[in-house]
């Protein structure tokens, strides 16, 4: 793997861009999930907790949906950036080409992106947890572990999707990735209702969804049900990221090496 120490320079650059543009990032990463939490957790939760439904989550709906949204927003906040942001960096605005004209390697640029996605998702998760706790959607001291879920999901999303995006000549297929990959994942990974409600034939597919593993970790953490399974889910996320990284480094090298 050809990442060098300059990867920290790349991280620094990404974080600097983030500081300059924090207003927007803060919206997608924090305000948007909090709005979802209010709408789903409080507004819709009020209807669900009446218990008139045929199925149940065995928890207050707010407690159920808060960790789901925490994990899902890490996926959603990073996905667009990994696709269109990377296309912008290599093609439309070309700032990555400027970066590799310095001692930074293409691997550093990629590593910087992945690391900064993790750092920002972590910061957003902390802010979200605080809000969720105030609203009463956090019931365990294990809750900070949910931050790990958000960070890992961000790293998985950025490393995999940017590895794909960097190999593409234009953004024509990106809406397909969002509509047929990211959005279904968001909707059916146990974020809004338990996976057990899905038809039995479909349920195994959820296991393939990184978001489901992330949601499980976050929910175990905020509801205080951490056990060996939690660790297993963490392991799956780490494994996916580890598998995507070399693929991404190679992609960035091919694209950015003159």
């Amino acid at each position: 793997m050809r990442m060098t120490q300059s990867v920290w320079r790349a991280l620094e650059r990404e974080l600097l861009v983030f500081v300059r543009t924090w207003r927007g990032s803060a919206f997608t990463a924090v305000v948007q999930p909090v709005l979802f939490l209010l709408a789903m957790g409080i507004g819709l939760g009020g209807l669900i907790d009446d218990g008139a439904g045929s199925a149940s989550v065995r928890l207050d709906y707010l407690d159920f949906v808060a960790p789901g949204l925490l994990a899902a927003s890490a996926l959603l906040a990073v996905a667009g950036e990994a696709l269109w942001g990377v296309m912008g960096g290599v093609k439309w605005m070309g700032q990555f080409k400027g970066m590799v004209a310095t001692p930074m390697t293409p691997g550093d640029v990629y590593g910087g992106l992945v690391l900064s996605a993790g750092v920002r998702a972590g910061a957003a998760a902390i802010a979200f947890l605080v809000v969720a706790a105030v609203l009463g959607g956090v019931s365990s001291l294990w809750a900070p572990l949910a931050i790990v879920a958000a960070v890992l999901l961000a790293i998985v999303t950025m490393s995999a999707l940017s590895a794909y995006a960097v190999r593409k000549e234009d953004d024509r297929t990106f809406p397909l990735i969002m509509r047929l990959g990211v959005i279904p994942m968001f909707l059916f990974s146990g974020t809004f209702f338990p996976v057990e409600q899905l038809p039995e034939v479909v349920q195994p597919i959820a296991v393939l969804s990184p978001l489901w593993h992330g949601v499980e970790v976050a929910r175990d953490a905020t509801t205080g049900t951490v056990d060996g399974w939690t660790l297993l889910h963490v392991g799956v996320l780490v494994a996916i990221a580890a598998a995507a990284l070399p693929f991404g480094v190679r992609g960035f090298e091919r694209r950015l090496t003159p």
Binding site: L47, I48, D50, R179, I183
Partner: peptide, 30 residues
Amino acid sequence: AWPILLTGVVEPFLYLLSIGIGVGALVGDV
């Protein structure tokens, strides 16, 4: 770009399945 146009149909359908049917089972009637 018709495949992209076509997948636009899928997205609201998925929302309907997830929120309508999935969450709907939790809610019942309103």
